[in-house]
């Protein structure tokens, strides 16, 4: 068992508000790790620290370390642009660029200096196949990404992230804006992707965490309450608060 990301004593602030309080967690390689907890518990804030998306918000600061590939991602040695090419992200709401399907996929690779048409074509095909979207869109790669359905758009966003050949894939409630059919397709996809990628997923639905994750972390009011194998967390939690949440007594 390899540790992919090692978080040590992480605090996170929005201005004066402390959103994360002394988080310690080890994310395992080629596993699906789910973050659960009630709204405002800090799970989304936390997943956004892992590729430094929170840098884009004015007035945020952090204390502590997130070790990835042996380095603290917040240290000056690590370049945030490069980090994000390795730690990809899929968002709550599908957010394709207002460009064609093809252009959406090649946006990242092009930035990284891949110019040859043949290679880009290949990347588009493999990424879309990996995201289980190829069959649906292969005949209309030039049409606008905004013409796709919500579920297709989200799979396109996953394909767009995969095109970067990331190491880790962060997913922030990726199915919250989708209908049940589209949701089950994405869940199926996550099961296939974990062979190649380390996946961290924030989810609002405990059922979803139970269905797709290997490990589960439960957050409450900015603190990590309990972390362990999903089966154990759901069947035999150690902490009373985890049990209350799982059994639906609050949240």
């Amino acid at each position: 068992m390899n540790i992919k990301i090692d978080v040590k004593n992480l605090d996170f602030f929005y201005g004066d508000f402390k959103a994360l309080n002394n988080i310690n967690i080890e994310i395992e390689e080629n596993k699906v790790t789910a973050f659960i907890g009630p709204s405002g518990c800090g799970k989304s804030t936390f997943i956004r620290t892992m590729n430094r998306m929170n840098d884009l918000i004015d007035g945020t600061k952090h204390v502590g370390e997130i070790i990835y590939e042996g380095k603290n991602i917040y240290s000056s040695e690590v370049d945030v642009v490069e980090l994000r090419t390795k730690v990809g992200m899929v968002f709550q709401k599908p957010n394709p660029f207002p460009k064609s399907i093809y252009e959406n996929i090649v946006f990242g690779p092009k930035r990284n200096g891949i110019k040859k048409k043949a290679e880009l074509d290949r990347i588009v095909e493999t990424s879309l196949k990996d995201a289980a979207l190829w069959e649906e869109v292969k005949d209309r790669l030039d049409s606008s990404a905004w013409s796709l359905s919500g579920g297709q758009q989200q799979r396109l966003c996953i394909a767009r992230a995969l095109a970067m050949k990331p190491d880790v894939l962060l997913m922030d409630e990726p199915t919250s804006a989708l209908d049940p059919v589209a949701t089950s397709k994405i869940e199926e996809l996550i099961g296939e992707l974990k062979d190649k990628y380390t996946i961290v997923i924030v989810t609002h639905s405990m059922q979803q965490a139970g269905r797709i994750s290997d490990n589960t972390a439960f957050f409450l009011m900015g603190k990590l309450i309990e972390y362990g194998e999903t089966s154990k967390i759901f069947s035999n939690p150690e902490d009373k608060r985890t049990e209350d949440y799982i059994t639906g007594r609050f949240g």
């Binding site: 370049d79 642009v81 490069e82 200096g113």
Partner: peptide
């Protein structure tokens, strides 16, 4: 790496 450096520049 040099690619990223160039882009950041």
């Amino acid at each position: 790496m040099s690619n990223v450096k160039k882009r950041k520049l």
